[in-house]
Write a protein that binds this DNA or RNA. Sequence first.
RNA 1: GCGGCUGUAGUCUAGUCUGGUUAGGACUUGGGCCUUCCAAGCCUACGACCCGGGUUCAAAUCCCGGCAGCCGCACCA
Length: 574
Amino acid sequence: MKNDDVMNIAKKRGFLWSSFEIYSGVAGFYDYGPLGGTLKNNIMQKWREYYVVGEGYYEIESPTIMPEEALKASGHVDHFTDPLTECKDCLNVFRADHIINDATGKDVEGLPNDELSQILSEEKLMCPHCSGHLTHVWSYNLMFQTIIGSKGKKTGYLRPETAQGIFIPFKRLLRFNRGKLPFGVVQLGKAYRNEISPRQGVIRLREFTQAEAEIFTDPRDKTHPRFADVSDDILNLYSQECQEQGKEPVKLTAQESLDKGVIASEMLTYQLCLALRFLKDLGIPDNVIRLRQHLTSEMAHYAIDCWDVEVETDKYDWIEIIGIADRTDFDLKSHNQYSKEDLRVFIEYPEPKQVKMLQVKPNMSKFGPQFKGDAPKIIEALKDMDASQVKESIDANGEYSLEVNGKTHLLTRDFMDFQEVEETIRGEKIFPHVIEPSFGIDRIIYSVLLHCYQEDDDRTILKLPANIAPVEVNILPLVNKDALNSVAREIHDNLRKNGIIAEYDTSGTIGRRYARSDEIGIPFAVTVDHDTLEDDTVTIRNRDNSKQVRIPIKDVYKTLKCLINLEIKFEELI
RNA sequence: GCGGCUGUAGUCUAGUCUGGUUAGGACUUGGGCCUUCCAAGCCUACGACCCGGGUUCAAAUCCCGGCAGCCGCACCA
C-alpha cells in the first residue's frame, strides 16, 4: 500500500514518526523529524504567501491555553462533548442520543444528560448488542483540561481550535482594520482534542496544527473584489444533492457554481478556489481532490454552507484536509452575549437617512412622586417602546399599560408629551458574518507526501515541488577523490552562505547517492566530475527525470536559485 | 472504550510451541578499498529480544499487568 511505503520512508528518512517512541509512544502524537520540520515550515510559509501576502489578512498569535469562560461562550465546554452510555453487561460504549434516535426516531441532539438518561429508562432501551442494561449518560468532553494558577481555582482548557483566539480580540482587530468590512485575520498554531481512540496515524491527532483564516464580511455583501481572477477555475463539486442522490461529483467553473447556487456566496466560492490553488502549488494533483458539501444534518446549526476539501488516499479513503464554512454571526454574537462587550460593526449608509419619528417625552414631575424608585426603570422601558403605539393606545383608551419587572403600570396622558422629531441616521450596527477557511496542516503534509511519492521502475522518488522541498540541492563528487571533494565542498559551502539548503554526500557509488537523494525529494543534484577539474563546469541533475545539464561553476548559484524558485524550468536549460 | 491478533537492530526476519553456549541472517547505515554518472563488488564496524513484575538454578521463550501497533465494534464539534 502506498500509505505504508510513504510512512516507512517518512520514519526512516526523518519526516515523521510517532512521539515518545522510547517510552512505547502515546497514541495521537507525532514528531516531525529534521526533514518533516523543514517541510512543515515551508508549507506554512507558502500558506502565508497566499493569505497574509496575497489576501492581506494579518497574522496573530494567541495562547493555546484558554480560560473556561471563553470556551463556555464558544459552546465548547457544553457542546464539544459526546453523550456516552455503557452497557453493564458487554461493556460496550454507545452514543446515548444515537441509541434513542435509532429506537424512537426522536431527535434528542443537545438534550442534557439526565434527560437522556431518563428517556433511556422510560423507553426501557437496552444495549443494541446484547440487550443488557445501560448506565446513566455521561459527557465525554474532547478538550484537555488544565489548571491555571497555583491555587488551581481557575479551570483552563487547551484550545480545540485556533479560531476562538481571533474572535475574542475582535474589537481590537476591527479597530486595527479601521472599522471597515470585509477584513480577514489568520492564525497558525497548535490545537488539541483528546480523541477517544485515535488510530489513523497523522490523520487523527490529539495535538495538531491548524492554519485558519477568519474573514469578517457584511452579511449583505459576500462578494470578493478579485473574484474575476478565479471565476474560470474548475471545481470538482460533491454537493449535497450529489451525495443524497448517489451521484458522482460534478465539475463546474467557479462562476457556474455560483450562478447555479451550488455554493452559497461569492466569498465562499473564492475561498474554495484559493484553497485549491494552494494545494496545486504543493504538488497535490487535481484528480485526487474533491469539494464535499456538508449535509444539512452534519452542518453546525448556525452555519449557512460548509465545504470540505477532501483528498483521496488508499488507506483512509477520502479525508478532509480543509474545511471552509460560513459560520454566520454565531461566534461574535455568542461572545457578545457572554462578555457584555459590543462586538458589532458600525456600517455607514451611503447617504444618511432622515427619519421622522414620534418621540415620547416623559413628564418627570409626575413620574417621580407616583412611582418613586421604580420611575427610572419605567422611563427606560417607555423609551424602548414604539412611541406611535403608545400614542395610539392613549388616544383610544386614555391610558397605556406597561409591564416592568413583573409589575404592570398604567400611564395616562398627563405622564408624557409626544413630539415629532426628525433624526439623521448615518448607519447601523451589525454582526459581521464569518467565512472560515480552516486548514489541517498535518493532514496536508500527509497528502503531499502521499501524492508526491512515486515509484518509477525501481526508483523511489518524492516529487516535492522544488520550492517546498526541505533540502534544495545535493552536492556530489562523482567519486570519492580529494580533488573532486574539495571542489564539491567549496560549491556546497558557497551555496549555504547564499541561503540555499545544500547537502554534501560522498558515501557509496554515485547511483546509490542519487537514489538516496531522490527518496527524500531533493529536486536537484550538482555532480562534480573529472571534466570539472579541466573546465570548471559541473552538471545539474533533475530529480524527476534524471536528466543532466552542464553549466559553469560560476553560474551554479544563480541557476539553482531560479530553478528552486520555479522561475525557470529545468528543460529550458537544455 | 471493548474484543481478537501481534511486539527481536533503522528495515525485513530466524529462534518462542518444547526455557539452557556468545540471539543468527539479509538489506540499510558509518569507515575503508575499488569505481569516469544512476541502489554493483570486496574488507570492516555500529546496531535488537516493547516496559514492569512473577515462576525458575536459568526467561526472547512460560504466567500476570501495562504500553503501542494492526483488525473488528463503538466514537469522530
